[in-house]
Amino acid sequence: MAIEKNYYTIDPQGKLLCVKCGVPLIKGKAKFMYLDNGFPVELPVCPSCGFVYVPEELALGKVASVERALEDK
């Protein structure tokens, strides 16, 4: 079986809680998409409702820099 590539991984380690479902977020599969480019990642996801959490550091760091790079393509 091919090893799946992940560009970024965050494990919430039970520290985040989904308010709606009342369950801790777990490390789950998610995907960033921008300008027709996709990036598989592992982010905190609610196992019940599927809410994907993008922490501030990630949004302003890695995500922002990839956005800039793609915008200049």
Binding site: E4, F32, M33, V52, L60, E67
Partner: peptide, 15 residues
Amino acid sequence: HRAYSHRMRVEKREG
């Protein structure tokens, strides 16, 4: 208390 944004879309993926 805080606000931030990003332009990328993010969604759950299966598998």
